[in-house]
């Protein structure tokens, strides 16, 4: 559906992207992760055909996005990273204008989206908060029911409730067979929606990973407080991987074998169990560190 081949672009400042290649399958939700300034938006602008690559190309629906700009765009939804609307319009006027440009007549889907994201579309854009503008942008990206949706940091500015509503929207679109690519520096957001993710740092792809595999790789830390220090010591000696121990408290790392952990715990009197989740961020940071150490 979407293929990037050795996409390279160097800006005057020396920054840019180098040899970015990956492909997104039809019906897949693909995450694009990296810290600020890593090249996420630059890559996305190439995918949208706004920039001419120095080398390589982006192919969407079988078409080179730079050479066939204007053709590729039908059936593509886009949410820019930094939203800038045309001045002097209300949200609804802007959406109406964009529908005209997209040559879409159907208003029903747009109205449903507005209702769903709960905002007053008749507010002048210059009076809108960041979150509200983001909502207008999300509606604009989805309202023409595109086959492919490219989202640049879609949840920035949204409150947790709206982030949840957005994730639901993405999952629905995925269930309807749409292809989505979303960039983010928020790992939990990608974790909840994506099948695979590419990680970019300093303009180059570090790795492309299967999210489910990463989730399986994810370690969980349990901190168990026992009645006595003896019980704690016995628990620690049972073969689980102990991270830390202090008096009657033991912190163990569990990866996959939850049954064994439950078994060992239930043998003793337990006062309390705390759970610490190692998030994907930590896993990704491992990737970064490994690469950094290698360099």
């Amino acid at each position: 559906m979407l293929t990037l081949e050795h996409l390279t672009k160097t800006f005057k400042s020396g920054k840019g992207i180098r040899d970015v290649s990956f492909s997104v399958r039809r019906g897949e939700v693909f995450g694009f992760l990296g810290p600020n300034g890593a090249g996420k938006s630059t890559t996305i602008r190439h995918i949208m055909g706004f920039m001419k690559p120095d080398r390589g190309r982006a192919i969407l629906n079988g078409m080179d996005t730079w050479k066939r700009q204007g053709e590729v765009q039908s059936g593509v939804g886009y949410l820019p990273g930094e939203i800038a609307f045309i001045e002097g319009m209300t949200g609804r006027e802007f959406l109406e204008f964009l529908s005209g440009m997209q040559r879409v007549r159907d208003r029903e889907r747009r109205e449903r989206l507005i209702e769903r994201l709960q905002f007053d579309a008749d507010t002048p854009i210059r009076k809108m908060s960041k979150g509200m503008k983001q909502k207008v942008g999300i509606v604009a990206a989805f309202m023409h029911d595109p086959e492919v949706v490219i989202l640049d940091e879609p949840t920035s500015g949204l409150d947790p409730l709206m982030q949840k509503a957005f994730v639901e929207l993405v999952l629905e679109e995925k269930a309807r067979g749409k292809t989505l690519l979303m960039s983010s520096h928020s790992f939990p957001e990608i974790e909840r929606t994506c099948d695979r993710a590419a990680i970019i740092k300093d303009g180059a792809i570090v790795t492309i990973a299967d999210i489910h595999e990463l989730q399986r790789m994810q370690r969980k830390l349990f901190e168990v407080t026992f009645d006595t220090a003896d019980e704690a010591a016995a628990f620690a000696a049972s073969g689980l991987s102990v991270e830390w121990m202090d008096g009657n408290r033991v912190r163990v790392a569990v990866k996959g074998d939850y049954g064994r952990f439950a078994e060992e715990t239930s043998k003793r009197r337990v006062r309390n169990i705390d759970l610490f989740t190692q998030n994907l961020e930590d896993i990704f940071m491992d990737y970064y560190d490994r690469k950094g150490a290698g360099a």
């Binding site: 204007g70 765009q73 820019p80 800038a84 045309i86 440009m101």
Partner: peptide, 17 residues
Amino acid sequence: MIDRGSMAYLLSTPTTR
């Protein structure tokens, strides 16, 4: 429009440069 980014919206629709 290029500087502020609103051109991106125009170019994201099926309209050539």
